[in-house]
Write a protein that binds this DNA or RNA. Sequence first.
DNA 1: CGCTGTATTGACCTCCTTCAAATGCGGTGG
DNA 2: CCACCGCATTTGAAGGAGGTCAATACAGCG
Lengths: 238, 238
Amino acid sequence: MFSPLIRKLGRGADLTQADHDRLTSLARTRCVGARQDIIEQGDRPEDVHLVLSGFACRYKIMRNGKRQIMALLVPGDFCDLHVAILGHMDHGIATVSPCTLAELPPTTVLDLTENHPRIARALWWATLVDEAILREWLVSMGQREADQQLAHLFCELLMRLRVAGVADADGYDLPLAQHDLGEVLGITPVHVNRTVQALRAAELIVLRGRRLDIPDVERLKAFCDFDPDYLHLVQRIA
Amino acid sequence: MFSPLIRKLGRGADLTQADHDRLTSLARTRCVGARQDIIEQGDRPEDVHLVLSGFACRYKIMRNGKRQIMALLVPGDFCDLHVAILGHMDHGIATVSPCTLAELPPTTVLDLTENHPRIARALWWATLVDEAILREWLVSMGQREADQQLAHLFCELLMRLRVAGVADADGYDLPLAQHDLGEVLGITPVHVNRTVQALRAAELIVLRGRRLDIPDVERLKAFCDFDPDYLHLVQRIA
DNA sequence: CGCTGTATTGACCTCCTTCAAATGCGGTGG
DNA sequence: CCACCGCATTTGAAGGAGGTCAATACAGCG
């Protein structure tokens, strides 16, 4: 059940079976329905949360009621690794689809970081990759138009979900409504719809219900200049 | 000379004089002119770089030649703390104004993180604040219109530069041309100009040459719904 | 005093928004 | 099996924020 995490962290550091067990032995798991808050802005959560299945998101709500999604959390992603250091959440976290979460007690996390350098390094690495993704989203928002921005997101999710082991070679289940995609891209649901249709018309994607298929991945990548370098998927050399 | 760093890190953890000396004793300093690359995408820098004076920026260049600035680095900010873990730079770093930089040899950083938990924690904290700023920039780009977005940037810089000790209570030197501001906000220089003029007309800012003054800080904050929570300026309670 | 880069202005165009209505669709109950 | 409900998706028309292109003004500087 923890395999998405292990698959992901294994990219950042060599983990042994013992490391794996240490991470998982003390965790409780919890199931949460779709569109539920997991952590609210201002919280000082005790446990560290980890997505095992489903999609969650980081978000902020503006004074006018609009919501900006700042990150999509897929299986293997941590929700709040940083809160132990920063003290409180400066944003909220909610599920998008139904999720199973792991809750790691703070003592476990403390023990891991202080006594198990390999795991600590892997967690550190995971945080930095999250930051790199955030940077790329900023670039997308600033420089790409809606169609390329959406295509870029679809490419990114393909890569990330493959690492987590929950995507096929050329498609995956995408539990986001067009409304949610709008909150990710910073555009209105209406314009998401028109953008989706443009990508469909160009035969770059097949999006039906909650399933996305990409007939020609290389063509979609070329369309949005997708360069997976920022995901740091290749095993570190040093 | 290292005081901006100490002032900044002191917010994240209690540092002693000994910690301070340890950080600074082995560093070389280096002066770089305006608009020079410090680190290029793909580099695997040996030393960790730190801004002591001046403004630098993280950026990515798009295939069409446009540049998106993903972070402004002011005195006290690290350029590449993450590269030791991630292995290579997925973006470039360049100066905006002339800068003095400190270069910390990797052995120093390694020693600090492994043998000096207080400093390690402070560095960790600084990285997480950078990430929080990145999230807020994403929100700005997705949800705020150009005038509020620019105002928000000006408010953020006021707070950050005050922490670094290089701003007055209601103004600071801003070495960015309108062209640069456009690369930060993801808009064209022409539109930056119109936006600046709108803020001027509303008497929210006084921007002349490379100096920004804010006649009524509270009014500017109210104008763009600025909430400094994400900067994590208040001393951690625990 | 001319040169160069930055700031400013104007006219026009495009992408995206807004508002509003229509269509389709999965589930539920009859 | 079908009627109906609630929700997401789709469509249309009009407006606004920001982009593009090109010309002009201006400031620092040798």
